[in-house]
Amino acid sequence: MRYDLKSAREFAIHVCVAAGASKAVALSLAEATVAAECSGRSSVGFAHLPDYLEGFLCGRIAGTEEPALCFPAPALIQVDAKGGIAQLGFDRAFEELLTRVSAYGVTVFSLQNSYTAGELGYYVRRLARKGLVALAATNGSALMAAGQSSEAVYGTNPFAFAAPVDNRAPLVIDQASSATAFVNIRQAAEQGETIPEGWAIDEKGHNTTDSREAIKGALLAFGGARGANIALMVEILAAGTTGANWSLDAPSFDDGSHSPGVGLFIVALNPQLLVPDFSARMASQIERLSSKGIHIPGDSYTEDKIEIDLSSSLVATLEKYCSH
C-alpha cells in the first residue's frame, strides 16, 4: 500500500495514540519512523513500529512521560527519558543543543532510561542539516556475543556519524557493531529463511545459518574482535557515560513489562569554527572519492521522497492496534 509522507505520519501518529502514547510521543515517533523510511532503513521504520506499539501496551515504554532535562555543565545536556522514547528526549533538547553548540563550539547530549533509539542516523542527520558534525552511540538489550563467550553481552550497539556537505544531503554513516541487525534475523525466522554464516550462533554457541536457532542464540560482531571492540566502546559511551543500563542489565525490548532503560550519547561539533569552508571541502572531497568509485554512505537518503510503500500485511498488523 502506498502512502504520501503526510498520510504516513498521520497513520503512525494514529496507531501510536491508539496504543497509549501521548500526542507528543506519537509525533516524535512518527517523524522518526517516516525519516527511517526516507533513508532506506525500513527495518527500523514502519516494520519496527509494532515493537513500540507492543511496548506502549505492555508497559515497556512509558507512553505519556515527559523527559527531564538538566545541564551539568555549559556544554553538557543530560536527559532522563523516564522509561519513554529517546526520540522525544532528543526533540525536547534539540534547540538547546543548537544554542549551546553555537556558543561553545561543541556540546554533548546524554540520554538515559529509554527504549531502543530506532534509526541512529536520524539523530546525527538532523544535526548535520544544521551545519554540524555529529557522532552518536546507543546500546540495547543484550543480543550479541563477543570473544569466546556464547553469552549475549552487548546490544547490536550501533554508531552513527554525519557531516554537512555543500549542495547535497549530509554524509551519514549508520551501522551496527553486529554483523547484522536483530530485526533481519527475526524477519528471516518468521519467513523460515536461512541466514548467512557469520551472522549468529545457536544457543549452544555453534555457528548457524538457521534463523530460528539464531533467535535462541546470539548475534555475532562484524569483523570478529574488531567489531566487538567497537561494541565495547559504544557500550561505554551509551551506557557508561550516560548512567543507562548496561546491555547485560537491560530488560528485553520485545518481552516483559520493564523498560530496557538504555542510553543514547551524541557529540555535536561546529566545524566552521575550525575550518570556515568545511562543507565546501567536504563536497570537493566526496566528489573526488566518488570519481574513484568509492561509495559514499548516506547517498540513499531521499529528501524529496514523496511516497512510502508498506506491505498490506504490515498495514493490517498496525491497524490491529487501533482496536485496543
Rank of each mutant, 00 (worst) to 15 (best):
P251A: 02
K130P: 11
I236L: 15
L171D: 02
S141I: 04
G293H: 02
A228N: 11
A86V: 02
V172P: 03
V262D: 12
P271M: 11
E95Q: 14
E10K: 01
E319Y: 03
G223F: 06
W246L: 13
I296T: 01
D277T: 14
F161R: 05
T138E: 13
E151Y: 07
T317A: 05
E197W: 12
W199E: 03
I306E: 13
F90C: 05
A81V: 11
L135F: 15
G263R: 14
M282D: 11
G105R: 12
A32S: 14
L269W: 15
H258E: 07
R281P: 06
G243E: 12
V267K: 11
G261E: 10
D51F: 02
Q272R: 10
E319W: 04
F253V: 05
F90Y: 13
A169K: 08
V275Q: 15
A250G: 04
L97T: 01
A221S: 07
A8R: 00
D255P: 04
W199Y: 04
I61H: 01
A47T: 00
A26S: 03
S252N: 02
D299E: 15
L264R: 13
P297D: 12
G118Q: 04
G118F: 01
T138K: 10
M1I: 13
V106L: 15
V44G: 01
V101W: 11
S211L: 05
I294W: 11
V267I: 15
N167T: 08
L57M: 02
K292M: 10
T33H: 01
P67W: 09
I195D: 00
E203N: 13
